[in-house]
């Protein structure tokens, strides 16, 4: 059934191409010809989107795990600070965080006399990692708190320290519970990477606009080119969504 609906979508994408899509007329390449010509560049841009999403997710997850443990820390000071950081980055628009990173961070660092370049896409990774961090922190907190308190008490009665309880009893059970929401978050980050085009990172959406401009702004190319972008993101994100739902069903807390 799911395969069928995906197929139907692909068919709808093809059907929205005008009839002349397959034939060249009067010197200018056909729509599919133009798409074929630009596809390698556009796909290299998409690979860049994926690279940004993976790195942002990795960085955000590591930071978010630390922040999430801060949210459930026994020290109230640590808990409050973590709470403030989480709320701030969770409630800030992603695009604003991206602008903030883009225009307020230097383009290169001087470390011990050596100049280390700090390109725009790295800033984009940091810009996306910040909301990922805050959302991961909430996911970690939710998972830790969803473990029945009886387990903490049982561990304590077996003379586990707090750290031992956390690492050996609580967190291993959390991983399963966190996985679906974390994957969902990854899907969102991947789709959000196209925002980087607004701040001038040469990712897929930027390159698509460039390609359309290079083709002389032909209006008949716009729907197929942006359709191709949609299609690429869909093909990548849809299986993640399906997989997430399966994991959710398997790990559902009864």
């Amino acid at each position: 059934m799911k395969k069928l609906s995906a197929l139907a979508l692909l068919f709808a994408f093809c059907a929205c191409l005008p009839g002349e899509a397959f034939a060249a007329d009067g010197g200018r390449p056909s729509i599919l010809g133009a798409l074929w010509k630009w596809a390698p560049l556009l796909l290299s841009g998409f690979a860049f989107n994926l690279l940004i999403s993976v790195l942002a997710m990795a960085l955000g997850t590591v930071l978010g795990a630390v922040l999430g443990l801060g949210l459930v820390a026994p020290s109230s000071g640590l808990r409050r600070t973590s709470h403030a950081a989480t709320q701030f980055f969770r409630n800030a628009p992603w695009l604003v965080l991206l602008f903030f990173c883009m225009y307020l961070m230097p383009f290169e660092f001087v470390v011990g006399g050596a100049v280390v370049p700090f390109p725009g896409w790295v800033k984009a990774v940091i810009g996306f990692a910040l909301p990922v961090m805050a959302n991961t922190a909430e996911i970690v907190r939710g998972a830790v708190q969803s473990i029945p308190p009886a387990q903490w008490e049982a561990a304590e009665s077996l003379s586990f320290t707090r750290r031992q309880t956390l690492w050996m009893v609580i967190l291993p059970q959390c991983v399963k519970r966190m996985l679906p929401s974390w994957m969902n978050l990854y899907s969102l980050v991947t789709m959000a990477t196209s925002l980087a085009s607004v701040v001038g990172v040469s990712e897929m959406l930027t390159l698509t606009a460039d390609a359309l401009a290079a083709e002389g702004g032909r209006t008949d190319l716009m729907a197929p080119f942006y359709g191709f972008v949609l299609f690429c993101f869909f093909v990548y994100c849809y299986p993640i969504g399906v997989w997430t739902r399966r994991l959710e069903a398997r790990y559902a807390v009864k």
């Binding site: 010509k37 630009w38 930027t206 460039d210 390609a211 401009a213 290079a214």
Partner: peptide, 14 residues
């Protein structure tokens, strides 16, 4: 610029 033909634009090789 990369989106302003013919002043600055991309060729298909990027």
């Amino acid at each position: 610029k990369t989106d302003y033909k013919p002043f600055g634009f991309r060729s298909p090789d990027g």
